[in-house]
Structure formats: structure tokens, C-alpha cells
Amino acid sequence: MPSVDPAASSMYTNQAYNTTRTTDATSMDKNGFLRMLTAQMSNQDPTSGQDPNQYFQTISMMTEVEQMTNVATSQTAQLSRQKDTNAQAMLGHQVSYITQDPTTGASSTATGTVASVQFDDTKGPSLTMADGKTLVDPDSVTSIQ
């Protein structure tokens, strides 16, 4: 069995990079759009030419949408890395965090020292307190000392 770098196995990968995506049956990705455009061009009547301005406008709009998608994906990944960095910065610090009683749903505040940080592909980072049993969502932390 090949050896796995422990640092690489504990890295959080944001869902923006998940290649298995669920899509709405009515939506179309950029490849589907290109196939449709190519089919439209190959099946058009050669006696009635297409307006080149309309063609370039369509290509321009598609390029803009792709660039916006790339920016959104990049921002999502950057936010994920920032959350990971913020969680790692809490290591060794005493934090106050909000807990919720599973039976009553009542909220209260607890404190503890962060002993380690775990990274999950879907949930993001989580903090383990010094007692070794308590897992805390970094988003529930209210103060760091």
C-alpha cells in the first residue's frame, strides 16, 4: 500500500471542486451550450446566412458566464482556505462557544482549550477540545483568549 502524506490526507477540499455534481434537468453547462451552438451552425440554411454580430454576441455572453463561474469557484475555495486558517489559529487557545442541548434545544455557552483541528470534505474544519471528546464547529465560537 502506498504511503500517504498525513498533511495531504487532512486537507479540506471544498465542494466547489467536487466533480460529481447534481444538476437540474433543465440546466445546461458550457459544454452542452457549445454542442447546441455547433449543431445550430451545422444545420442552418446555407442560403440565409447568420448575422455575425449575433454569433459573436452569443460567444461573448457565454465567455462572460464562464468567467463569472470561475470567479465564484475561486472565491468559494478562498473562503474555504480562510476558514481552515482561522480554525488552525485557534489551536492551544481557550475559546468560548455556543452549545445546544440535543433533547431540549436550549443554547448555552461553554469554554475549553482547542487541542486539535480536523478537516472534513463536506463539513469543513472542526475543533476538538482538550477533553478529547468535545467537537466544536468553529462557526459557534464566540470568543478566543
Rank of each mutant, 00 (worst) to 15 (best):
V141L: 01
N86A: 14
T19D: 13
A130P: 00
D139E: 10
S48D: 12
L34H: 01
T122R: 13
Q100H: 03
A130V: 04
T109I: 12
Q75Y: 04
V65L: 13
V65P: 00
A77Y: 05
D139V: 07
N43P: 02
Y17M: 10
T113W: 02
E64L: 13
A7V: 13
M28C: 05
D45R: 08
T103C: 00
M129Q: 03
A39K: 11
G132L: 05
I98P: 00
M129N: 03
G124L: 01
T63H: 12
K30W: 13
Y55E: 06
V4F: 14
P52V: 10
T69R: 15
T109S: 08
G49M: 11
I59G: 00
R81L: 12
K83C: 02
L79D: 11
T85L: 14
T58E: 12
M61V: 11
F56W: 12
S108W: 02
L91W: 02
A130T: 05
T103Q: 10
N31M: 10
Q54L: 09
M61F: 07
T128I: 15
M1K: 06
T122Q: 15
V117H: 04
T109M: 02
T47F: 08
A130M: 05
Q40M: 13
G32H: 07
P138V: 03
D139A: 15
T142K: 09
A72T: 14
Q15D: 07
S27K: 11
M41C: 06
Q88W: 03
N86G: 07
Y97A: 02
H93N: 04
L79T: 10
N31T: 11
T142N: 06
M1W: 03
T26S: 14
P138C: 05
Q100C: 02
Y17S: 11
L135Y: 06
Q54C: 01
Y55R: 07
G132T: 08
F119V: 00
D5P: 06
Y17L: 13
S143P: 03
P6R: 08
T103E: 07
T122N: 14
Q88H: 10
Y97N: 02
M11Q: 15
Q82I: 15
A25L: 09
Y12S: 03
A89G: 03
M11W: 05
A87G: 02
